[in-house]
């Protein structure tokens, strides 16, 4: 059974249909890319999946449970976490604190534990610190632990956003244009990094414009245009799909050759 099953989902903003009758699924352990021109509704889909927007119509089933129109926190608990197109780190907090905010739901103590420093407080704080360090180690972030997130190099900020998402205990990671603004070398590095996440057992949905990234790491690709799914398939099928080329890659011959 698919880990995520989206069926017939629509989202209307007033009279504007941002997403209409979209179906797709993602299997456990896959990397699935959603591509499409600007304004096609890709980020809207992420917002629907994470509960930022309510769906107008349709069903989203994650891990056997319906999650459409559920609260954001509920969906985080269920195991979906995301990154953002324009980086949204907690810039005035240190790297380690950013990751610890990711552990928020699993740091279970209340205000009285906090004031009186009960054993429960110590237990969970200790756990959060140690797990955060583990996540940072696994990303090779040792030298940045004390750094304020806003002072990190650009590429590292992208990675930290992913680290923070992992910290929530997510099974499914939604990455919104992780390679945006990166040079070829950085996106190469990111590609390795995302493949590493797949090896660790994460399932990933990727929104991306950088075709070298999309074509190289996706197991399957969905193509969105004007809020509708116009094609899906393996990377090589998509690259040669006439409709896709027209809608998206066909604007210039150079792009089509990609």
């Amino acid at each position: 059974m698919a880990l995520l099953e989206v069926s017939n989902v629509s989202k209307q903003f007033g009279g504007l249909a941002a997403v209409s009758n979209v179906d797709f699924h993602v299997n456990q352990g896959e990397i699935v890319s959603i591509i499409g021109p600007n304004g096609a509704g890709k980020t809207t889909i992420f917002n629907l999946l994470t509960g930022v927007y309510d769906v107008t119509e349709g069903k989203i089933v994650f891990d056997g449970k319906e999650i459409q129109n559920k609260k954001v926190q509920h969906i985080v608990n269920a195991g979906i976490a995301r990154t953002f197109q324009n980086i949204r780190l907690f810039k005035n907090m240190r790297t380690i604190e950013n990751v610890m905010v990711g552990f928020h739901q699993n740091t279970r103590y209340n205000i009285f534990d906090l004031i009186f420093r009960t054993p429960r407080f110590r237990k969970y704080e200790k756990e959060a610190h140690i797990k955060a360090l583990e996540v940072l180690h696994s990303l090779g972030f040792e030298k940045y632990i004390h750094t304020y997130a806003g002072n990190l190099p650009y590429g590292e900020q992208r990675k930290l956003e992913i680290a923070r998402a992992i910290a929530t205990g997510a099974k499914l990671l939604l990455l919104d244009e992780p390679a945006a603004g990166m040079n070829p070398q950085e996106s190469e590095e990111l590609l390795e990094f995302i493949l590493g996440l797949k090896d660790q057992g994460f399932t990933i949905i990727l929104i991306e414009h950088d075709m070298s990234v999309v074509m190289n790491i996706s197991d399957r690709i969905y193509v969105l245009d004007h809020g509708k799914m116009i094609a899906d398939g393996l990377p090589e099928e998509i690259a040669s799909n006439q409709m896709v080329i027209e809608a998206y890659l066909g604007k210039s011959e150079d792009d089509a050759a990609d």
Partner: peptide, 20 residues
């Protein structure tokens, strides 16, 4: 956790809510 959450809300409420 309380202090971290409050500071996270200050920096970016949307991102904070998506961290749970």
């Amino acid at each position: 956790k309380l202090g971290r959450s409050l500071r996270a809300i200050k920096d970016d409420p949307l991102a904070a809510s998506l961290m749970g």
